[in-house]
């Protein structure tokens, strides 16, 4: 589904990603771990097409299509979803209105009519239940005054509504207590299918107890320095990132 080859990217002459190779197939869950500043969030932003990042070499290909020329919204229409580490506030715009706009813009891009209000309401009800979201929450302004946990749950709610092919969860576990973590992880697991894929970016092994990855990659200084199965995550948890740093320094 996603094929990243020799990806070099950075911001204003500062190269952050220094040759990333990664292949994600449909039905797979990949975890990307690594210390602070290793380039995890940059990788997520580059896949999503954030414009301040410049790709200097290599490619990001989604289902055989090079994404280089695609705008962030086109990538979203192709099925890429990013759950933000720090979701932004949009005062006065309700969660429902935001989702309605996002879904209908996506449909417009595919040449479809707006989703009928009845279907939209039904979908909202189902997905809100899945993530144990109170209906009142949906009429609040997007992320405004939300707790850390509410913000993250709202991100996954949006993912459920948009039904992406490839979901990237950027530090979705940060700021979550154990109950919220369980709910969020449950939601993600229920949304998983053989046709979509998930990339989980995290510092800690904790989330991976709930969302079990097929592959774990360790990112360090802009490169994937180690790949393995979920055992690798446990090993990291035990030994810490210094182990990786030492190993790569050798």
């Amino acid at each position: 589904m996603l094929k990243i080859s020799n990806l070099h990217a950075g911001i204003e002459d500062n190269e952050i990603l220094k040759g990333i190779d990664l292949e994600v197939k449909a039905g797979e869950v990949h975890a990307i771990m690594g210390p602070n500043g290793s380039g995890k969030s940059t990788l997520a932003s580059v896949i999503a097409g954030k414009e301040e990042y410049e790709i200097t070499a290599g490619s990001v290909v989604l289902e055989g299509e090079d994404l280089e020329d695609a705008s962030p919204e086109e990538r979203a229409h192709k099925g890429i979803f990013l759950s933000f580490q720090y979701p932004v506030e949009i005062p006065g715009v309700s969660v429902t209105n935001f989702m309605k706009t996002a879904i209908n813009e996506g449909r417009k891009a595919k040449g479809l009519e707006d989703m009928p209000a009845k279907d939209m309401l039904k979908m909202i009800r189902e997905k809100a239940e899945l993530l144990e979201i109170d209906r009142k929450f949906l009429s609040r302004s997007l992320n405004e005054g939300f707790s850390g946990g509410e913000k993250k749950r709202n991100e996954i709610f949006q993912m459920a509504m948009l039904e992406p092919k490839l979901a990237i969860l950027d530090e979705t576990d940060s700021g979550l207590d154990i109950d919220a973590l369980r709910i969020v992880a449950n939601g993600v697991n229920k949304l998983k299918s053989k046709d979509n894929a998930v990339i989980v970016i995290t510092h800690y092994q904790r989330l991976l107890d709930y969302i079990v990855p097929d592959f774990v990659h360790v990112l360090h200084q802009g490169k994937i320095v180690k790949s393995g199965t979920k055992e690798l995550a446990h090993e990291l948890e035990e030994k810490g990132y210094d182990w990786i740093k030492q190993e790569t320094a050798v």
Partner: peptide, 18 residues
């Protein structure tokens, strides 16, 4: 804010209107 909207498939002009 604009990138957040873009990422959800909402183009910049629509994002500003929103």
């Amino acid at each position: 804010q604009i990138f957040y909207c873009n990422q959800r498939g909402i183009d910049t002009e629509k994002a500003i209107a929103l």
